[in-house]
Design a protein around this nucleic acid. Sequence first.
RNA 1: GGCCCAUUCGUCUAGUGGCCUAGGACACCGCCCUCUCACGGCGGCGGCACGGGUUCGAAUCCCGUAUGGGCCUCCA
Length: 422
Amino acid sequence: MSVRVRMAPSPTGFLHIGNVRTALFNWLFARHEGGEFRLRIENTDTSREVAEATQQIQDSLRWLGLDWDGDVSFQLDRLADCADVARRLVEEGKAYEDEGAIRFRMPDEGVTAWEDAVRGRIEFPNEQLEDLVLVRSDGRPTYNFASPMEDVWDAITHVIRGEDHISNTPKQINLIRAVGAEPPSYAHVSHVLGADGKSLSKRHGSVTVDEFRHAGYYAPALMNFLVLLGWSYDDKTTIMSRDELIERFTLDRVVPSPATFDYEKLDWLNGVYLRALPAAAYADELVRFLREEGYGWDEALIRRAAPIVQEKIERFGQFPDFAGFLFRDVEPDPALLDGRGPVVAAAHDELERVDPFAAPEIEAALRGLAERLELSPRKAFEPIRIAVTGSKVSPGLFESIELLGKEETLRRLNAAVARSIA
RNA sequence: GGCCCAUUCGUCUAGUGGCCUAGGACACCGCCCUCUCACGGCGGCGGCACGGGUUCGAAUCCCGUAUGGGCCUCCA
């Protein structure tokens, strides 16, 4: 039988990164097995639904590259079916009315157990199981009724979800058996913890996919990072493409213990991905990012700047700070220029004569200048860098000056000389 | 409180009884490269939560303790 899994988020907020990782595991499992990955919105509770969230969930999954099969389904659409099942269970004596609600009778003795794909055998004493409310007194089915029923109707073969659902599982298994169906396989993955060691959730440390997008992370890198939170291929492989992940992902290599989200490592991994991008693709991604973030900067210049920042920044979000001097004027800190007026002035005179105004020629001129002034390149270039880029940290000086152009470079040099005196 | 889950370097992990004087990666520290910042190269620091068993032998199996997390909603 072909595999079918689902991601079933509630539309009560934006998709946070822990849920996204669960979605990723589902998706990888489905693609690895050649099965289906479905998206289902668990909107039993209309009052809390945030319409925007439904859209947001889909946008986030798509951005990350997680495509689902078939149409998105909504739990609300199966209200009538749930009511039918509940009625039948009452008729069969398996459920009963309780102050207007309908409760499912749990067995009193023995244990309910299952072989969890990531945790091994888990069993609950049945005496611990409370009779499950299927239908509220207002007639709406509860999540713990609707969700397993939908898994049955959708012929879900593997339920891969967060460990917070472990204690719901025995109830759902009993329910599913009561309606004459066979429970799916279960895999309960651990939570993702924030830097404070607490589970990431909507209420706590919530980080949405959107935030990563706006911070300039590259989706394939984020995917690679996320899968490593609780899964590994072997003892030394870190970088894996989407296709490699699909080929290699198996549930038996998912670890049961919770993982802490580490931004340092994400940043490093993102940098690895960005550096590995072909120049043209890097420029495309950079332009797209800046446009999305509302920067109206000249595209041709962005593309020319791309190669000089590619090795230097690990997130596109760092570009405005790092290379913004190419697109807007700078205001160097006079304190950094103190006493360096003469060097900057000399650089101005030197660069005025450079032709063609290209990096190699600029470099030769500036190095010659440093030599004549008997300054180390490091010493000589610092004030020039500050004058031209407004910062002590920048892309390569010579390339930066070339991109800025002769006229603007000379103007900034002059302005800096004036500042250093003031 | 009850039930359930988890516990290897600061972090992510490899490890399924001998290959482990525990391997890799990020971070950190040092050196090299160098126009700054990065990149890259080399080296270093650092861990099996604790206590009992089982076994010729335990990070690996069992029990207990501790710690962390989850659930105990007519929330999802």
